[in-house]
């Protein structure tokens, strides 16, 4: 009983603000997809997105994101780094694809996962999948297994530095 009470207490920490953030996000998506501001559509959208946001925020602590100016700044910086890496990845991929003879040494290496929160892990895994020659395959505990198109090192620490170095700082600041 005591246990139940404690978990309820913990769940309600940060409830309103993360609810408002998620509600706003879903409501904006609804308005953009409908692309009209007639009263019935706005009312239905507000109710539906409020219900969805309440369900998702109550069900788990995945969506517990505080919103501070520092986090917004780091998120914007992360977006910039991400697009630069995406273009670099594609140019490298073009080099492999149009080479007369494909000369690659693929392999699966093990890398340490520095982030704790589920959303942060999702964002990091998605960024790795879109950066030069790497693809996340599995996550066991704190170890990420990455398929690397051109293996340069098999040492976990060195590989961690080479693959997730560019993102770690900003994502750590945003999601923790």
């Amino acid at each position: 009983m005591q246990q139940d009470h404690e978990t309820t207490q913990r769940r309600l920490v940060g409830f309103p603000e993360s609810l408002i953030v998620l509600w706003g996000f879903l409501f904006v998506v609804w308005l953009v997809i409908n692309s009209s501001v007639e009263p019935p559509i706005v009312v239905i959208g507000a109710l539906a997105s409020l219900a969805l946001a309440a369900i998702f925020v109550r069900r788990g602590d995945v969506w517990r994101l505080g919103l501070t100016p520092r986090k917004v700044f780091h998120f914007l910086a992360y977006t910039g780094v991400f697009f630069v890496e995406l273009v670099k990845a594609n140019i490298e991929m073009l080099r492999y694809v149009y080479a007369p003879r494909i000369d690659i040494r693929p392999g699966i290496v093990k890398v340490k996962m520095p982030l704790r929160s589920p959303i942060g892990r999702l964002a990091l895994a998605n960024s790795i999948a879109l950066t030069p020659g790497s693809l996340v395959m599995n996550l066991q505990g704190d170890a990420l297994f990455i398929h690397w198109l051109d293996v340069k090192t098999t040492d976990p620490d060195e590989a961690t530095r080479m693959i997730i170095g560019p993102f770690e700082k900003h994502l750590g600041a945003v999601f923790g």
Binding site: P106, N126, N138
Partner: peptide, 28 residues
């Protein structure tokens, strides 16, 4: 990226053969 993770994990778990030039497979 999400569907690519899911596909590569499925491919690895049903032991799809990898290229001959593969150097290391830490997950296996």
């Amino acid at each position: 990226p999400l569907s690519s993770h899911a596909l590569s994990r499925a491919a690895h778990s049903i032991r799809t053969p990898m290229a001959r030039t593969t150097v290391v497979d830490a997950l296996r």
